[in-house]
Amino acid sequence: MCIEVKICGLSTPETMTAAIEAGVDYVGTVFFPPSPRAVTPSRAGELLAPVGDRATKVGLFVDAVDALIEEVLKAAPLDLLQLHGSESVERVAAIKSRFGVPVMKVIKIRGPDDVSRVENFLEVSDRILFDAAPPADLENPLPGGNAVSFDWTYLKGKAWPKPWMLAGGLTADNLARAVDLSGASALDVSSGVEDRPGIKNPDKIRAFIAAAKVI
Rank of each mutant, 00 (worst) to 15 (best):
V5D: 05
K6P: 07
I7K: 06
G9C: 08
L10P: 06
S11M: 06
E14T: 13
A18K: 04
A19I: 12
A22W: 05
G23E: 06
G28V: 03
V30W: 02
P33K: 05
P33L: 11
P34T: 09
P36V: 01
P36N: 09
R37D: 08
R37E: 07
A38R: 11
S42I: 14
A44T: 06
G45M: 07
E46S: 14
E46F: 13
A49I: 05
A49S: 14
P50A: 08
V51Q: 02
G52I: 02
T56H: 12
T56Y: 11
K57E: 09
V58G: 08
G59M: 04
D63W: 02
D63A: 07
D66M: 09
A67Q: 14
I69T: 06
I69K: 11
E70I: 01
V72L: 09
P77T: 06
P77E: 12
P77Q: 09
E90Q: 14
R91V: 08
V92P: 06
A93L: 08
G100E: 11
V101C: 07
V101W: 08
I107E: 09
K108N: 11
D113H: 14
D113A: 15
S116P: 11
V118S: 06
E119T: 13
N120Q: 14
N120K: 15
F121Q: 01
S125K: 01
R127G: 03
R127P: 03
I128R: 01
F130L: 04
D131H: 03
A132C: 02
A133V: 12
A136E: 15
N140C: 11
P143Y: 06
P143E: 01
G145A: 06
G145T: 04
V148E: 02
S149D: 09
D151H: 11
W152N: 01
T153S: 15
L155S: 04
L155A: 05
K158L: 15
W160C: 01
P161D: 12
K162N: 09
W164C: 00
M165K: 03
G168H: 00
L175G: 01
R177W: 10
D180F: 12
L181K: 13
S182N: 03
S182T: 00
G183F: 07
A186T: 12
A186P: 03
L187V: 10
L187R: 00
D188C: 02
S191N: 07
S191C: 08
V193G: 00
V193M: 02
E194P: 04
D195C: 10
P197R: 10
P197I: 04
G198L: 05
G198W: 06
K200G: 03
N201A: 10
N201W: 05
N201D: 15
D203Q: 15
I205A: 03
R206A: 13
R206F: 08
A207E: 13
I209T: 08
A211T: 12
A211D: 05
A211F: 01
A212D: 06
K213I: 05
K213S: 10
V214C: 13
V214E: 14
